[in-house]
Design a protein around this nucleic acid. Structure first.
Lengths: 255, 255
DNA sequence: CGATCATGCTGGCTATTGAACGACGCAACG
DNA sequence: CGTTGCGTCGTTCAATAGCCAGCATGATCG
């Protein structure tokens, strides 16, 4: 096993569990504590983790990005399940908008077999995924490249989105809460999501179940303004009722 | 087995497994470690792999389509030389436009150390390359994703470009010829290049020397409308004279 | 035939890891 | 509040594996 692989796995664990222990990792990888410590030391230097006594915890440094390949691996199962449900909502010939989330990327992978889709997105990863796809009409919003991310944001993107109207807009968010509604961590992303929702007949919010009752920084819209919420498992009764009252369709996986 | 075959096999393995080990490859191909290391070094330079101690891991932008990969590997040395020359023309704080060519990608790699660059491009690969760059202002033109490629084209892109004006526009082409001027193989790409040139004070054409006296399909502009041509070696006297007459600056590598 | 390229080989150098040991943090206990 | 014991930390040293630069050789190409 290459050192860099080990560090990637450590990062993945960190990002999933929030913390790692030196002793556990050493046993798991079959190396000595020293090696793990040196790994953590390096991750710490790179700002990707914060060393503590006995292990390390997730870095709170929001300016530094977890490498894409690592970020992509968190909550994979939830995202895949949600993406499958969303995939079922899309028909041949649909006009859709997709934001720049990992879930959106999984949605795309799920609907590659559909015909004649017209798609507008601000995600660079989705463009990449579709570079060799033929028969679709794929539009990029353009705009400013968000630092440390693979999304396009800003005035140009919003204006471009406003120039179109589609059947379905699919967006993710960082939190959904009774009082604050749908929130995201970043103003520019939130603005783009607003624009997406404004230009669509049906607004679909994809959230894994951990996002309920979380509040992030910037408000995207109220709960009632969403038409459909797709998540991977049934939220609590409170949420089921609340969504019903607000006339929001709720879709989750029937296990 | 040819070196290039071996490298292709290595790329395939990388793409499948996510990593390769020097020792394994050496045994498998029956060559020395040194040879493998040189292969990986080359793949690393070309941005197709990331070398690490003991082997290499997948480069994040490896999931791009094969045709593009193949194209990227032609004339790498010429393109690198040209890119270095173009890099020298760019100063901190410049406003530039770059088209979606492989040469443009090499130009970017060459100027990563510059400060405070504002850049407009229709290349998805360039966006990828700059995703983790901070301190620059990177704008995507948006537009329609060209089938089988990593460029954005069409009305939306052209309109967006028309809304800006920059110091320097850098474009490539498929052919340059006395009668037909600068030509490209594809109407939509040609239109975008026209737009780039229209919005720039200084129009720079990058061409490797094989493009002289070639005619492609769609005209971009006349020879005289270009301000500077950058190529990797001195073209024939006929071209040197012709460019001088047309008031086109010619830059090539002095070996 | 000269130029270029791919490859192998050599010797010195560097990175990674593990082992050992004294120093230190932490928590429990008197 | 201090002590004690245990686990963890950082440093140092050594061994190994991998790396790099340079040179020589043979193949290929114009």
């Amino acid at each position: 096993m290459l050192a860099i692989e080990r560090r990637n796995v450590i990062l993945t664990k960190l990002s999933a569990d929030g913390k790692v222990l030196v002793a556990d990792l050493a046993k798991e990888f079959g190396v000595t504590d020293e090696t793990i410590r040196r790994d953590l030391e390096k991750l710490n230097r790179d700002g990707l983790a914060r060393k503590t006594y006995g292990g390390a915890v997730k870095s709170e440094n929001l300016n530094i990005d977890i490498p894409f390949n690592v970020r992509k691996q968190t909550n994979v199962e939830s995202k895949r399940a949600i993406a499958a449900l969303v995939g079922d909502m899309i028909r041949d010939g649909d006009y859709i908008m997709l934001d720049a989330s990992t879930t959106a990327l999984y949605v795309i992978k799920n609907i590659l077999h559909k015909q004649n889709i017209t798609l507008i997105t601000n995600s660079i990863e989705i463009l990449l995924e579709l570079a060799s796809k033929s028969g679709w009409n794929v539009l990029s919003t353009g705009g400013m490249l968000k630092e440390g991310g693979l999304s396009l944001v800003g005035y140009q993107a919003e204006k471009m989105i406003a120039g179109f109207h589609v059947d379905l807009a699919i967006c993710s968010c960082k939190g959904i809460d009774e009082v604050n509604g749908v929130t995201d961590s970043n103003e520019r992303d939130a603005e783009v999501k607003k624009a997406f929702f404004k230009s669509a007949n049906r607004r679909v919010l994809v959230v894994d179940s951990s996002k309920f009752d979380k509040v992030s920084f910037v408000k995207v819209c109220g709960v009632a303004e969403v038409d459909t919420i797709v998540t991977e498992k049934r939220p609590g009764d409170v949420w089921v009722d609340r969504l019903k009252q607000n006339n929001v369709e709720l879709i989750y996986e029937n296990i």
